[in-house]
Design a protein around this nucleic acid. Structure first.
Lengths: 329, 329
DNA sequence: TCATCCTGGGAAACCGCTTTCCATGCGCGC
DNA sequence: GCGCGCATGGAAAGCGGTTTCCCAGGATGA
């Protein structure tokens, strides 16, 4: 029940601990072929596995990265998290993950926890909020002050390299595309006002409409998830509105469900569009018009940004995808 | 850029490192009020955060658990992973996660990696396979031999406490329910034959049919994901079949999409059922008949099992949920 | 032939923290 | 007034590794 240490291996191979370390775990020093071989055999026989935290302590350089998301069960974050873990694995890194449940306090707490774990980098995935940024930023700075690397997926508000989706541009392009389909009166399920992603998409969409000379849309706030979309669409006055834009796909799904319950046909009576192009939603009926974000790429990019010393923020393009949910016959 | 250590704090407070440790990080020894207070102030002023890996090394007891899933982007695993991280957080634990991409070799590699990280427990989530169990089991045993705790979600094949969903029973009950709806000729999208979960659900369903005196269903293999369901349903000969059972929900979704492409009405011409009751699929049209598994609970239970010395495997019940995708007018 | 360099091995210091173990000063009962 | 136990502080020995430093011996160059 005791765990095998490097000393055990060294003793069995009849060498010093230093030699065993050099033979097994690499070093700029070379080890004689005979000894190296006997060390390796001893290690294999004992089933030795180096104690990585101890190794990290000695080398003062670990191989774990931290990942902080809002909600792992939300497919948006799930896809990104999956991409991050795979990319990390490819680089021989392992990832520690935390879900904040969209609570900014817990996000701060996680950064502190990851600093305590002495992770090499932390990835903050998800929209920034208008409020509490100050303390989060302090915590992030403290972490970076100790040599920790940080990257974001969302908005570049923390002064760290960020993968920033083209929320404004994408929503704006979507507005143009929908106007091109002949829609004139819109409603927006705008999500929580403090969520910057939600604001960006809302204002991008408004700007697009304005550029088309179309009237102001009605905007209604709500939670950023399926139930938020459902609730907002359930209570919305839709007379005179021909198209509904939900600021993300899962809200759009909730909205479509609510509309169905109200007996409103989509897209016949009301067109609906979302944002994100969540892969697992592609078989929805009617197929959802949306703005595609390269979610998996974004996760990988974020890891690269965090690791690369010279990285700077990047915008990732968003592409309008017209499907059946906004079809006009 | 240097990180603050306990020595720094001790020096600034004018006490020994031992006292600082006792004051900040707990101990069964008491520290005088005056000193304790000045240590705490020094720590706060310096922004000290204990080096957790070092602490774990000294205490030889860390606070990280490992989680190994097949595919984080798959909502089944995403929901479980989310539940695990929340439950871990509640207990002051942090989780290291790895996605194997359904490759048994990488699952083994992850267990080794987590052993090297000296995590306190590892959770293996996902169906066992018929093949490679041997080496995985060795690796698991080696880890347990060093005091590591292990739990599974899936099948109890590794000799560790397992959360085992009632796959056989659930599928059997589903078969009875569907037979009760008047269906007589069935097809099963059976997934990969080496996946035990897939086998259990297939055989449970067959048993249910047999008990009803119904003819043998046609069974077709395929991948365990959406595309697997799509491909299988696209090529299947469906004459004489009135109901299709896909061994999980995401396959069912793919199947429904393929059927739509073939111009086959669901449920009018063909009824479809799945398994799992993935929450994010609840707004599908037609709503999917399925067998509900308490996914989030299962994740939490698995963590409990891993941590509790006296834990034994548990079965979790599965509940048939009839919805529109098998409706008969 | 001899000083010199290089190679490969081990002893010991160190990474940051915990915990034993020892020392000190105090209040207590007698 | 004295021995004793107890509370509290510090020195030092780990935890499992890495790396600096020193040393022996053989190859090399002049």
């Amino acid at each position: 029940m005791r765990t095998v240490t490097l000393d055990d291996v060294a003793r069995r191979a009849g060498v010093s601990r230093a030699t065993a370390s050099r033979a097994l775990n690499g070093s700029n020093r070379t080890v004689g072929a005979a000894l190296r071989e006997s060390v390796e055999r001893a290690a294999a026989e004992l089933g030795y596995e180096p104690n990585l935290p101890a190794q990290a302590l000695a080398r003062s350089a670990g191989n774990v990265v931290g990942l902080v998301v809002h909600d792992l069960a939300d497919p948006y974050f799930a896809v990104i998290a999956d991409a991050v873990t795979r990319a990390a694995d490819r680089r021989g890194l392992v990832v520690m993950v935390g879900a904040t449940g969209r609570d900014p306090e817990r996000e701060i707490a996680y950064v502190a926890a990851l600093r305590a774990q002495r992770v090499r980098a932390v990835l903050l995935v998800g929209s920034r909020t208008t409020g509490t940024s100050r303390r989060l930023r302090d915590e992030v700075d403290r972490y970076r002050g100790t040599g920790g690397r940080v990257a974001c997926v969302g908005q570049d508000l923390l002064g760290v390299p960020t993968v920033a989706p083209a929320n404004h541009e994408g929503a704006r392009a979507l507005a143009h595309a929908l106007a091109g389909l002949g829609h004139r009166r819109f409603a927006i399920l705008g999500g929580p006002p403090e969520l910057i992603t939600a604001r960006e998409r809302t204002s991008g969409f408004r700007d697009g409409l304005a550029e088309q000379g179309l009237p102001e849309p009605v905007v209604v706030a709500g939670a950023f998830d399926r139930d938020g979309g459902h609730a907002a669409a359930a209570s919305l006055d839709l007379s005179a509105v021909s198209c509904l834009f939900a600021v993300n796909d899962v809200m759009a799904v909730g909205a479509v469900a609510a509309l169905r319950e109200r007996g409103i046909d989509v897209p016949g009576t009301l067109a609906v569009a979302g944002f994100d192009d969540i892969p697992s939603l592609r078989d929805l009926v009617p197929a959802l018009t949306t703005v595609r974000l390269p979610l998996a790429d974004m996760g990988e990019r974020a890891l690269e940004l965090a690791l690369d010393e010279t990285a700077v923020s990047v915008q990732v393009p968003a592409e309008v995808i017209l499907r059946d949910s906004t079809r006009r016959d």
